[in-house]
Nucleic acid binder design. Structure first.
Lengths: 221, 221
DNA sequence: AGAACACTCAATAGATTGATTGATAAAGCT
DNA sequence: AGCTTTATCAATCAATCTATTGAGTGTTCT
């Protein structure tokens, strides 16, 4: 019974966080806040909500420990709290994408949708690279990138991705990769980019697989 | 602008999933379902909910694409939908745990992040008590306080602290304590008082430690 | 000190959600 | 066919959530 009560307490905590995320407005706020500390007024502007309403949603986010306020003169800046918040959002986005792809594949017969989600194979990538119709993105840390990467890839470590979004060429589809088929880095990157409306796919293989397959590799920055 | 609309649509989808997870009952159902397909009646039994209520929650989960029903004779079995649902739950749990750990170790939502919860040792406290240069504050519930407390301590349960702030003597530094070194009550009390500009520190030990060390104890209100 | 500013708080009305009840539908049994 | 089991649906009421309004708090500037 004591275990059951503890279980219930934990689930109640989880539910509280989840319910906080259960509003498009708050998700929008969170997304803006995750790009750096912002004042209430700025956030109201960015989201199109009234200031009072924005304030209330921010209080809600604060109560759930997702944002942290900090006074700066006469304004109050809200910042993302520490902890794996982006990871949670990534997981949520990823699931939503998965679900959407599933629904679409039932309606239309297009395999393209599921493929989009599942990722891209080495073979297809090679083909697309030949006619340079993709942007290849390596989200590993700088050091790993320097040790070797796929030819033509550009390196933006995941932590910097959000702020350096504008430097990313988006005229083509973006293919993200990191260390392996289920490396968290690239999954997060794909979720982030898709939230921004950028067409993005995941490379099924990571850099080690690529190298192991004997394909060409570049080194240096 | 078109991107913005797509953004909003995606966020609405995310919010819908999140809101579905925003209920302890549904999380409980999901947890049971994730261990294998179960009938409505069985799930009602496992969770202690009524059958009709269980059914409704399951409909909700189904609408959000988290579970899938399948007929088996006269019963209907619910199974976990495909997709990274467990990953999402894991991310949620991870964040909740992270948040909990943070509350216990640091001043999570204090305005001034530079302020640390600098603690005070039993030895120093004894010395300060001798020349009555501190106010000793016990933030545990009344009942616990009556069962025994540090000599000279005044009792203001955490819930009442904010409204009874004016009754707190603040000419000296305030030392707060409750049950143990990382009891959430006193951590919150310290954060609250510091926000109000009252010099406050946390006693490294709680009441149980004090008693165990054989130091003198008062009882009664 | 007083005005302007940025934000929060409290109160409200309208919409949404949760649990309960009783009625309905679908499958299996006799 | 009738009857039972199992689950859903429809209707209800209390509780909660959202956005708006206007008042109140703390900070800076003059």
């Amino acid at each position: 019974m004591d275990i059951e009560r503890a279980q219930l307490a934990l689930l109640t905590e989880l539910a509280e966080i989840a319910r906080t995320l259960g509003s498009p407005q708050r998700l929008m706020l969170l997304q803006h806040v995750s790009q750096g500390a912002r004042s209430v007024e700025r956030l109201a502007e960015l989201t199109g909500l009234s200031v009072a309403n924005t304030s209330q949603h921010l209080q809600h986010l604060k109560r759930s420990g997702l944002v942290v306020p900090r006074r700066d003169g006469k304004r109050i800046l809200y910042d993302l709290a520490s902890g794996p918040i982006n990871e949670l959002l990534a997981a949520l986005t990823y699931l939503a994408e998965h679900r959407r792809a599933e629904i679409q594949s039932v309606i239309s017969d297009s395999v393209n949708q599921t493929e989009r989600l599942e990722g891209i194979s080495r073979e297809e990538l090679l083909e697309r690279l030949r006619d340079s119709s993709v942007t290849l993105l390596d989200v590993r840390p700088r050091e790993e990138f320097a040790m070797g990467h796929l030819p033509g890839a550009i390196n933006i470590p995941l932590e910097e991705l959000e702020e350096r979004l504008s430097t990313l060429p988006v005229e083509h589809e973006v293919i993200a990769y990191c260390r392996g088929p289920h490396c968290v880095l690239s999954v997060n990157a794909v979720a982030l980019l898709r939230r921004k409306g950028i067409r993005t796919r995941l490379l099924n293989a990571g850099f080690p697989d690529w190298k192991a397959a004997g394909l060409s590799v570049e080194t240096g920055a």
